[in-house]
Every structure is written in structure tokens, then in C-alpha cells.
Amino acid sequence: MKKAQEHTAPKKYGMVIDLDKCTGCGACMAACMAENNVPFREDETDKNLSITWLRVYKLTNGKKFPNADVCYLPRPCMHCEGHHGHSPCVSVCPATATDYSYDTGIVSQIYTRCFGCRYCMAACPYHVRYFNWWDPVWPEGMEKMLSPNVSVRTRGVVEKCSFCFHRYQIAMEKVRYEGRAELAEDEYQTACTQACPANAITFGDLNNHDHAVYKLKTHPDAFRLLERLGTNPKVYYISSREWVRRQGDNYLENEGKVVAKAH
């Protein structure tokens, strides 16, 4: 298995989300919950206690009618590369329970290794890491509908979006079985990407010239969240609206207009 991986070029999976297309319907969130056996509680009023690997934020431009504008921003794990894989969360985990893969660019979480210190949560500025404050309890009969490809997490450990890594593993098994070296773009797609009715999410290998994300990330209106902090995220957003792009990062008052950066 390892040998086959060595023969393929390192990938850097990432996402480009077109915020002008996103309607905020939440299908991506629902698909993610179902795909990854994400637990939920009867009362989800307190969103700071909910587990939402992919969370859709509502952004407003703060203006009044008729200039009021709204934007929905889906936020999965950014799978930060940081500086040479030095992502904020991976470097701080004391028990090596989270890892940056140089083969895929995916930040993994090893649930059976995590002992729940929550240092990674403190390190992540995107709030993509969630703690299991309770043991998961599924409504009667629902446990039979859980995905067999994703392990259910116990109380007391941290979990987060994995870019549906199990799908990558299944796809790679097929590739190896068929004796191929490379994975085609459509063979590995995340659940949220496929569920989005507006096709706002595009997923693929950011290193691969043939993948759509390779071109999209260089779109003049593309930006990443909190780039200035040096997290080097692998999720890109596109918006034609300047106020939306400006909410992607923190700027001092005198810093003027946001100019999309070359990547």
C-alpha cells in the first residue's frame, strides 16, 4: 500500500467555494453530517456545543435597505499547510493525534489517539475542531443507517472535517486494484461537493493542472480565510463582492482595498 503511494506524485487536495453561487441552503452541512456519522443532540440551541464539521456562516455587509447584502460562507476544515506542513493544530498536538499528510495535504485526526486536551481547538482560528462533550446517542433505529466507512467517535475526543478521507481510501483501493497510478478527478469528491445543488463547491488536487480547482484558485476574485496569519489554508473562496473578500481577513483601517493575491 505504501509502495503504491510512493509512486504517485504528492497531491494537495483542496476546495474552491464560489460564494456568489452559494444560497446558504445547508445541503452541504446535512450531507457532511450523514456521510461522517456526525453526532447531534436533541437540543442544538447552543451552537458552541454543536458539532458541524462544515458550518455555513451568514455574512452581512452591515448596511441598511436598499444596500443590505448577505453572503453565505461554508467553512469546512481548511487543512492548513502552514509553513511546510506546520499547520496551527498539528504542531501543537502533544500526542501526535493529528497529522499533516504530505501525500494528500489532508490534516487527519486520529480519534483513538486523541486524549482530549483540546490544545488543537485553541490553536485553530477557524473553529473547525469540535469536542465530543457527550457520548453520541442516535435516535432509535438510526444507528443502522450509520456509514460503515467512518468510525463513530466517543465522548472526550476532538473531531473535524477530514475532506471525506474514507472516500479517498476507497477510491485509491480501486485505483490500485486496477493497476493505475493516478486517481481521476471525479473518483474522489467530498460529500459536500456532491450535495451542493448550486455547484458552488469544487474539489480536487490543487497541484494538478487538469483539475478544475487548479485554475479556479487563481481566479482574480479568489481569496482564503485569514491568509495573513500564515495558516496557508487549502480552501479558497471566490466572490465578486469586495465587502465579502474583505471579510475574509483582518485589515487595518488604512490598508485600503483588498487586492486578490496571486497564488
Partner: peptide, 26 residues
């Protein structure tokens, strides 16, 4: 008390990530 899985507390020693400040603390 603070760690979510107290019975796994020894992982911080056994699976130590030497780059983490918390490992050095422990």
C-alpha cells in the same frame, strides 16, 4: 480532570510529539 479521556492521559508521554509545548510541560 481537564482532559476528555483521562484514561488515555499517558498517551502524552508514550506518543509524545516533541514539537508541542504541552508535551514539554507534561
Amino acid at each position: 480532570i481537564d482532559i476528555g479521556q483521562p484514561l488515555r492521559g499517558w498517551f502524552i508521554f508514550w506518543h509524545a510529539n516533541v514539537h508541542s509545548m504541552l508535551t514539554e510541560v507534561a
